[in-house]
Design a protein around this nucleic acid. Structure first.
Lengths: 236, 236
DNA sequence: CGACGACGTTGCGCTGGCGCAAACGCGCGC
DNA sequence: GCGCGCGTTTGCGCCAGCGCAACGTCGTCG
């Protein structure tokens, strides 16, 4: 598993927000500083609280970031898809990684040591600028979620969460949208701040109305995206 | 109001996380690029959605950052106290300022244009690094609040919010802690994602138990900090 | 191939907290 | 000094959603 895999083309990095505005040579420099490795489904990549010593770029597969609160309650912070970075800010945080990272499917990623990334940022200040902009976006996103959590009701929040997943990981397939990685009711509950019971009930109701189709685990099919959007908009 | 006021000592900046690790000359450079100005109670400093063209450092007084959601619902993001910066990330955000900033008391601040701040970051890369670390902290804080909002109940959230205020703006006064800037029940409600009714009820209850003392508006006195902490910890 | 375990579904009762509504008190402006 | 208005308090009814619990279903491993 720790065997080094062949590296992808440096031009791939150009698509990433993190490496915007870098020239060819810089991209090769960036790529050269990282290690490619495989991720096995279910394996833990880093653990909440550990000092942030790595930066990750997922090439394929899917990774779940989850947090355990002081009271032991879990919450799912986000899902990472191909060509997304994660664990990047931990190197700047006193508390280390803010959550656990677990591979929910097999996958491949590039890893940089925090040291290497710091050196890269030093050699190419544009990266730090980009990181700042990305963090800003994340912050904004989180802030909107705070607003959402406190004002919307469960149904809206769930609809919103699923729409995010559709946006990020949805695979259109003759009119429907398929989210085909292991996504439990518990995950959805922890993403929306509710219980798996309520998620199950709501999803059942939607299934009855032809909005979604819940395969039993590891698959969620959205039949009617507009209907979900309607649920989000729904005034109380 | 737009009259330029005398600038404070450059060494003051050294206390700020944003300017850690800068030498004397750099601090003077930073200070020189900003403008000092007065803030009148009730005045609006910037408006949600406007392009982020300024960075602010509050010297005295108190500023409230609030957000209006798509559904028109308001939420209070945070309160700014002396020696805190705000509006700093808006220059990196596509959406401009993420919220409105309103002075809740008279005050004095330093303002930099986004241009000037960008130039400063370019001349002193350490500032960008510091900004990254600060953003990271903010992100972490927000993430914990997301968890809190979704799992804790109103009472805990309210207690937590008040404790934050005590921490940040509390003035110890013979055993009690006084928060002496205009803080309405509505503000507290919008900070904790509840209604002013529930806040009022809860505060009344606490008043009965000798935990707080609610002056009618513009003042909140916390008599028993440990009791509040106990409320936060309280298992369901 | 049978049993176990993880995940999902559903019913039921309870309650925290919201919406509505009315009354009150403090401070401000006239 | 008087009245008006904002902020607050409090009562009441209601319902979304949680906790508990039992049951169903699928995948897996011995």
């Amino acid at each position: 598993m720790l065997r080094t895999l062949p590296k992808p083309d440096a031009t791939m990095l150009r698509r990433l927000a993190m490496f915007q505005g870098l020239d060819e040579a810089a991209l090769r420099d960036v790529l050269g500083a990282g290690q490619v490795r495989a991720l096995a489904e279910g394996s833990t990549i880093f653990i909440q609280g550990d000092p942030g010593t790595t930066c990750h770029l997922l090439l394929s597969g899917r990774v779940k970031i989850q947090q355990t609160g002081a009271d032991g309650r879990q919450s799912v912070i986000r899902f990472i898809g191909p060509e997304e970075m994660y664990g990047t800010l931990a190197m700047f945080l006193k508390g280390g990684y803010p959550g656990d990272a677990v591979a929910v499917t097999d996958g491949v990623e590039i890893v940089w040591s925090a040291q290497a990334m710091r050196a890269l940022m030093h050699r190419h200040p544009q990266i730090a600028q980009n990181a700042l902009a990305m963090l800003g976006d994340r912050l904004q996103d989180l802030q909107s979620r705070v607003g959402e959590l406190s004002t919307q009701r469960v149904e809206s929040r769930l609809a919103h969460a699923i729409l995010r997943l559709v946006e990020q990981a949805g695979r259109p397939r003759d009119g429907r949208v398929v989210i085909d990685f292991p996504l439990t009711r518990r995950d959805l509950a922890e993403m929306t701040g509710t219980t798996l019971h309520t998620v199950s009930r709501t999803l059942s109701a939607w299934e009855g109305r032809g909005i979604v189709e819940g395969g039993h685990r590891r698959k969620l099919v959205v039949l009617d995206v507009p209907a979900l959007k309607a649920v989000v908009e729904e005034e109380r």
